[in-house]
Amino acid sequence: MAAGKIDALSQFALHPMFGELGRMGFSQSPLMMAVAAGLTLLILGVGMAPRAMVPGRLQAAAELLYEFVYNMCSETIGEEGRRFFPFVFTLFLFILFGNLLGVFPYFFTFTSHIAVTLALTIVVVVLTTVVGLAIHKLHFFSYFVPEGVPKLLLPLLVPIEILSYLSRLISLSVRLFANMMAGHVMLEVFGAFVIMLGGAGLLGLLPAGLALGVNTVLIGFELLVAVLQAYVFAILTCIYLHDAVHLH
């Protein structure tokens, strides 16, 4: 990075990797996706290998993750939530590990790409719509008709409801993407401050130290955001599934 120029966005740039695979469109992003999926499966596989009555550390971690997502599903969606548990579990851990791995230096954050988060959101919205249609058939469309509203207002309210339903695509995907991107831009900017100020002579040392302190705090903050945004994505998926199953 050249002094006097903050290149905060090149960290999001995709580069082909692994020769032939790269020519097939393989970049850092799919690599980190595979690492995230692999780490989760490793925790489940290695952690649960002892099948101990009193779990060790890794087994406790695997059980904690399982029960956390399981309770989220059954409490938010209801009895039927168990059917969606594997999907929500996969989704939550995919995003959680994607976010957390991104905090490591030189690692890539695939959840900072709108294409990825939008694709995940499309999966969620299509799934909830299909589930709603499968359970309630055509009655599902009553979801867009608010109850206890004068019939005169319906021509106005039904499009609004449909619009708000479709806006989930934007809100869910942009929330995750923007949070991850903003955090990483901020880390990069303050990191650049440290280098620029530190190289500017004696006067710059104090502000450089301050910027380093800010970056240290930001790392902790990013860890919080990483977990929180994964949780938000998963819990909203559960709420949408609850709506699809119960129609309000």
Binding site: L14, P16, G25, F26, S27, S29, P30, M33, F110, A115
Partner: peptide, 11 residues
């Protein structure tokens, strides 16, 4: 950049 959409298919 084809990689932008390719990551979705890989993903």
């Amino acid at each position: 950049n084809p990689l932008t959409l390719d990551q979705v298919w890989w993903g």
